[in-house]
């Protein structure tokens, strides 16, 4: 699965924020820890670069499912900065880094399970298979009912 996202090149996003450091032109690290964390990492705020609510909220939920977590929350500090802050505080001086790793691995299991079940349902289940609504036919039918000439105007130019 690796490599699905990495290959996307650096570029300006719509808000004009460069996804790399302006001063060094180096690509910024994917993840960092804000200053002020506990020295045993039992409470830290992680910075996830180039991530948003998509991963942030899912990860927050998975971390909150861990019984050793005292607090977990995330925020997007500014809408035009492509990063999120993820705060984790642990009970009993346990490591928030280990907790994050465990949550990532659990999230992978969860998504793989959804993927398997989806593919299984697509293969085995009985569901409605039908054609799309033919919009053109519906429009022509409606126009005919209203007594207007159906083919005036936008039919494809065959000349």
């Amino acid at each position: 699965m690796a490599g699905v996202n990495e290959e996307r090149p650096l570029q300006l996003d719509n808000a004009g924020t460069l996804n790399q450091s302006v001063s060094t032109s180096l690509e910024v690290d994917k993840i960092g820890i804000l200053p002020g964390h506990e020295s045993d990492y039992s409470a830290c705020t992680f910075v996830l670069n180039h991530e948003d609510h998509t991963l942030g909220n899912a990860l927050r939920w998975m971390i909150m499912k861990d019984a050793d977590v005292e607090f977990c929350g995330y925020s997007a500090p500014h809408p035009s900065e492509p990063k999120i802050h993820l705060r984790i505080q642990m009970y009993d001086n346990m490591s928030a880094v280990d907790c994050l790793r465990k949550a990532l691995s659990n999230l992978r299991d969860l998504l793989s399970t959804v993927d398997q079940k989806y593919k299984k349902s697509l293969r085995n289940d009985k569901y409605i298979k039908e054609d799309d609504v033919d919009v053109r036919a519906v429009v022509e039918e409606t126009l005919r009912e209203r007594g207007r000439l159906a083919s005036s105007g936008d039919a494809m130019d065959t000349s």
Partner: peptide
């Protein structure tokens, strides 16, 4: 799902680094 799994891998590699 593939793209989400890719994101997870990216964060894990970032933690390793």
């Amino acid at each position: 799902i593939k793209i989400l799994l890719g994101k997870i891998t990216e964060v894990e590699q970032g933690l390793d680094k």
